[in-house]
């Protein structure tokens, strides 16, 4: 090993740089901890925890324990907090904490318990450290030739049993979660082929449309996902709205198919008074084409109002 392995810390312990790092990262870590408690959105809380963890990791690194610092980021910030975020995002994107106290005296009890926990923690650490002589990180590392080597030899000699017990506990917890979340499959899994055959059967038996549902509408007034598509006969298709949005009210989403159909007709009537819908003008535009060729059904426009019936459109399920 060259001098690199002997080098234990990026920043010299006790130097001015370390002090600066302490004040900056310490402040940020405290801000993160306060943010965790004070922010209303759970995702923001999770982010503040990540901030605290990263700052603690930087402090570990400046204190001459780079391995601990990196493992802190990889394991806690990268894996544990990420799983937290996963759960938060999956169960509720916008859930924020309610401030109503459901248990009487909960806050007071919580404050007392935290104080008690603090006292216990300080007391236990003080007792454990009492009488221990400190030799400094450099000497502790030098004993085994480096920070990582020192940790490794401690983990696999002095604390071997403790490490094994921790590993067993973790594996038990993981197995427990697997068992609790496991669901027995009662029927064989249906693959792409089975699903396709099922759809074809449905079509044969009940005439249910085998293809995908119509996509939401893109109209002049709205293109939100809850906007129903307009069918060729001018009616709105309920099937084009995603199931959770059907029948729901939202300022941006005119979810009433009848309303959309009415709007559409209104627009159509407005545009009729202008150029495009007038049969004569249409004939001018199309030049040599006979009107009947453009609109084969226009002969039923007997009143000459420019309105004519379209052939009956297939209904929502694709049956004509």
């Amino acid at each position: 090993m060259n001098e690199l392995a002997q080098m234990n810390a990026v920043v010299e312990v006790g130097s001015a740089g370390e002090e600066w790092a302490f004040w900056i990262c310490g402040t940020l870590a405290v801000i993160g901890a306060l943010g965790l408690v004070l922010s209303r959105k759970t995702v923001h809380s999770a982010l503040f925890v990540a901030l605290t963890m990263i700052n603690l990791a930087v402090l570990y690194i400046t204190l001459g324990a780079p391995f601990l610092g990196f493992v802190q980021i990889i394991v806690y910030t990268g894996a544990v907090m990420m799983l937290f975020l996963f759960v938060l995002m999956l169960i509720g994107v916008d859930s924020s904490d309610s401030l109503i106290e459901t248990l009487k005296g909960q806050r007071l009890a919580a404050i007392l318990m935290v104080l008690a926990l603090g006292v216990i923690a300080v007391a236990v650490i003080a007792i454990a450290l009492d009488g221990t002589t400190t030799i400094g990180i450099n000497e502790a590392n030098a004993e085994h030739g480096g920070n990582v080597e020192g940790l490794a030899s401690l983990m696999f000699t002095k604390y071997l049993l403790a490490m094994e017990i921790v590993a067993a506990v973790l594996i038990t917890a993981a197995m427990g979660a697997l068992v609790l979340a496991h669901r027995e499959r009662w029927s064989p899994k249906r693959g792409q082929r089975e699903l396709a055959e099922e759809r074809a059967d449905d079509f044969n038996r009940a005439g249910i449309h085998p293809g995908s549902l119509p996509s939401p509408g893109v109209l002049a007034t709205s293109n939100a996902v809850g906007t129903p598509a307009i069918l060729p006969d001018g009616s709105a298709s309920e099937l084009s709205i995603p199931v959770p949005l059907r029948g729901k009210k939202h300022p941006d989403i005119p979810a009433e198919p009848e309303q959309i159909a009415a709007d559409f007709e209104e627009v159509a009537e407005l545009s009729e008074s202008e150029t495009v819908r007038e049969p004569e003008k249409l004939a001018d535009v199309t030049g040599h084409l006979e009107l009947d060729e453009v609109y084969p059904d226009s002969h039923n426009d007997e009143a000459g109002t420019g309105e004519f019936e379209l052939p009956p459109a297939p209904d929502d399920e694709g049956r004509s």
Partner: peptide, 12 residues
């Protein structure tokens, strides 16, 4: 001495 771990940490 731990720069590959640093790479993993930054990736996470």
């Amino acid at each position: 001495p731990q720069s590959v771990l640093y790479l993993l940490a930054v990736a996470s």
